[in-house]
Nucleic acid binder design. Structure first.
Lengths: 322, 322
DNA sequence: ACTTCTTACGTCATTCGTAAACATC
DNA sequence: GATGTTTACGAATGACGTAAGAAGT
């Protein structure tokens, strides 16, 4: 009989048919360029005709390839969908997954995309997003079981917690009033805040606050601090020139306020946020969401070490061993 | 990410789900029993749960397996259908395939099934069945291009012809009148016809007639022969006691007549019929039909050497080399 | 000259069949 | 003990990546 088709070939074929570019398809499929070429050649041999007209400069579908891609795309995706639905069923990705977000910025720039990816992959599993309050024991909502995962700013060093995929890694900025002399600077350093009042979040664990902004400047100034009650509150005070507010670049994507300018802080390392969960609570649902996050971010940024690195290290490695 | 499913696994899974028997599934898929076991185990690992409840005595689908098979069967078969349709398009299995049949008996017992298999596999290719006439140069309709293939009794030794898959191999019988003393025999031999008139087909090549029934008996009798004009004609003459008619066992499945009895002939080898085509005319259409025949017959008889043997030897081996 | 697809080739993982073990009736 | 599934293991096939080649702009 003929040689049977395999899904591997269809995956590659459909990817190339979409991208019309062997290199991009290879990248998307996380395989080698030459492999794409080989697989397409093999598929063409099985079909018995060319599927792509290609020079080294341009790739296009032949009528045959067009037809194949038209007719195959739907049953193929149905097959994958049904299969992953059954896998979810077997493995327990259903019901509701509750995710706490500590602050909008800690969700990172791809949050929406991550949630959409998860929803598409696991239609039987609802996602519930819960805003959490400032709380020195903010991780307790995980321990109490009020949420399954938490999007939170690092560092998190509690021994009973697993730190999953990174959600963001952002440069630090200082929000200052437009009229502030610092507003005209290219960048500032922590010492520049020595004679100003710095915002202070209420009721957060010391560890996190100190990592966020040092309590004492490099030159030894002990900073004055003012507790804020909300980010809107902070913005008002900044605009009024009463405080400066250290944050990350994307902050101003979510909160808009006149009279406030962001100036890069050059002597603070980038700040990271990540998904965190109670190690003891590890479940297929949690793993699936962590995977969706890692995949989405690595695809969006093209950088694998960024998101997948930490996620696979800690979250994915263990189930394989079990 | 997870490990990707492959069609190989789905094929095996669906086969086992239908048969509910690893051994039969293996047979149907032409693979080893243990391979079925391994593949199912692998698939279960990928799914994350058992798909079959199985003891060494009984195999049944788990609810999970049931759902998987329900949901997957349709898109899977659609995938295969679309793919083979495109393959046909590429390779040229479309239009009309004309097949001549020399006599109903030479089509063999699975003819209908063969044609149905071909039609199912190649819906875009029409099949036209043509009855051919007795003719000493009966292969000329192939040479003239009036038909693409011919179902005909062997031997065929013309150098420009390819003998494809066998359609039948049947024991020889002699049709005699009910009243004939031979009718009461368990079996007869050629010599028993020495004092009778034997039917003779009109205008057939000597080679074929002699292979069909020897012109001279083993003991040296030269047989009297009477030319018949049709099989119905022959049956009438047999019933009337005027001739005896050598044929094959299945003859009486197609032609029914009172007063005629079939008695096995013990000293003639089984007679074979096969598909034949002009070697120079080899085409995807012809190959596809030959394959449909070989597959159908090997499946129906369970005997691979019977049909596939000769077909693959001659018809399938060459395209691979080309 | 540069980008992009293809071919050649070596390495490694998977697949497959044989044979023996194991389980169930 | 017969029937049927699983495990162990060695051989062969096929998958994959690297690096060099070819072809087009």
């Amino acid at each position: 009989m003929w040689q049977a088709v395999e899904l591997r070939e269809l995956r590659v074929f459909l990817a190339v048919a979409e991208e019309l570019h062997f290199g991009r398809a290879a990248e998307r499929l996380q395989i080698n360029r030459s492999r794409v070429s080989q697989i397409i050649n093999g598929l063409e041999a099985k079909v018995g005709g060319r599927l792509f007209d290609r020079t080294s400069r341009r790739v296009s579908l032949t009528p045959l390839g067009e037809r194949l891609s038209d007719r195959l795309a739907q049953p193929y995706s149905q097959l994958e969908r049904e299969f992953s639905a059954v896998r979810d069923l077997a493995v327990g990705v259903a019901g509701t997954l509750r995710i706490g977000i500590y602050a909008r910025v800690s969700c990172g720039p791809h949050w929406l995309q991550i949630v959409q990816t998860f929803r598409a992959r696991h239609p039987d599993c609802a996602v519930e997003i819960v805003d959490t309050k400032f709380d020195p024991n903010y991780l307790d909502i995980l321990r109490a079981g009020a949420v399954d995962m938490l999007a939170v700013r690092l560092p998190v060093s509690d021994a009973d917690m697993t730190v999953g995929p990174l959600l963001s890694r952002e440069a630090r900025v200082l929000l200052v009033a437009t009229g502030d002399p610092l507003a005209r600077r290219e960048s500032v350093c922590v010492d520049d805040c020595g004679d100003r009042t710095v915002s202070d979040a209420p009721a957060l664990p010391r560890e996190m606050i100190d990592a966020w902004f040092p309590p004492v400047t490099p030159s030894g100034y002990k900073l004055r601090r003012m507790t804020i009650r909300s980010f809107e509150d902070a913005l008002l005070l900044v605009a009024a020139g009463e405080i400066v507010h250290p944050t990350v670049t994307s902050f101003l994507h979510y909160y808009i306020h006149d009279g406030v300018v962001a100036v890069p802080i050059r002597d603070l390392p980038p700040s990271e946020s990540a998904l965190v969960w109670l190690t003891a609570n590890r479940s297929p649902k949690i793993e699936a969401f962590a995977r969706a996050a890692a995949d989405t971010i690595s695809r969006a940024t093209g950088d694998r070490s960024f998101a997948a690195g930490r996620a696979t290290e800690r979250a994915d490695a263990t189930p394989a061993a079990a």
